[in-house]
Amino acid sequence: MSDSATPAPPRGLPMIPEASGALAIIGLGAIGYFLFPDDLAFLTRLIGITLLVLSLDLVTGYCGVATLGHAAQFGVAAYAAGIACVRGVTDPIALLGVGLVAGTMMGLISGALITRFRGLPQLVLSIAVGQLVAALANKLSWLTGGSDGLSGITPGKVFGLYGFDMYSRTAFLFSLGVLLIVFVVLSRFVRSPFGLMCRGIKDDDLRARMIGVSIYPRLVVMYGVSGAVAGLGGALTAISTGVVGLDSVSFERSAEVLVMLVLGGAGHLWGALAGALIFQIFEHIVAAANPFHWMMLVGLLLIGIVVFAPRGLIAPVMALATRLARKGDA
């Protein structure tokens, strides 16, 4: 750091975070598409879950809300898109819209309940909301297919041109496109005054109130945005896999995405992205290599990461980047 009177703004052009996010996703997508053409179905599912992890990051990483019920937003949107498709709305973009709206509504409802409280009551309430949605999905079997799952989801062509093929090429590229747009939009969103204030609320909510902020409505709005992102993930999963099962609203799903977020590093979009990718790819490879003991290996990996990088895998990378930037300033 120099001691000059006027500090320079942080280095970089205004659109750098958005551009680097877009490039990274395109690069990773190209690797997946060209080098692993047989795994596109898996990679498509991975993108759906990645959106859920990003969504969770918005409330947990940016606002400090503890939740173990985040699959509710994802699952409700997946069911909504699936049901709409079975009942005749087959345009994939329209189905995404259905998922977006359903996810947002579910997010607003969950947020209105969950963010009223803090700490353990909040966590318990989030589990309760998740369980309620899971129970409803099971009980309303005339609508959701119950424990058999909702099947027969056959979406039409994307833009009326690209049909969903058995190699999942269209599904993968379609999902990748959605992830790209969401990531770029969120990169901007989290650096906006609204996003910055959410990080402030997470740091110290009394300080936030003492500068005149009403916290509750902001957290509910953030939950709505988060629900929209989760909803896109849910709708994509319904569209690309053609089925929606009870697993999409399950407690395990909620817990798993929280693990991915902590693994990658909560409070950074890059952390959510890295955590989702690494966890799911590791799980995929290990489960194929050793179908009997893979859960143990995943557990060991997590323990290792929590011990050696308690703030997530992204934290040491960010620290290094900051140090390099400072060295550049000097």
């Binding site: 703004p9 942080p10 205004p14 969103f189 906006s192 005054p193 996003g195 910055l196």
Partner: peptide, 12 residues
């Protein structure tokens, strides 16, 4: 009253 904005720049 600009902390409700979701896409504009913040501190800068």
């Amino acid at each position: 009253r600009i902390t409700r904005r979701v896409f504009s720049a913040a501190t800068e």
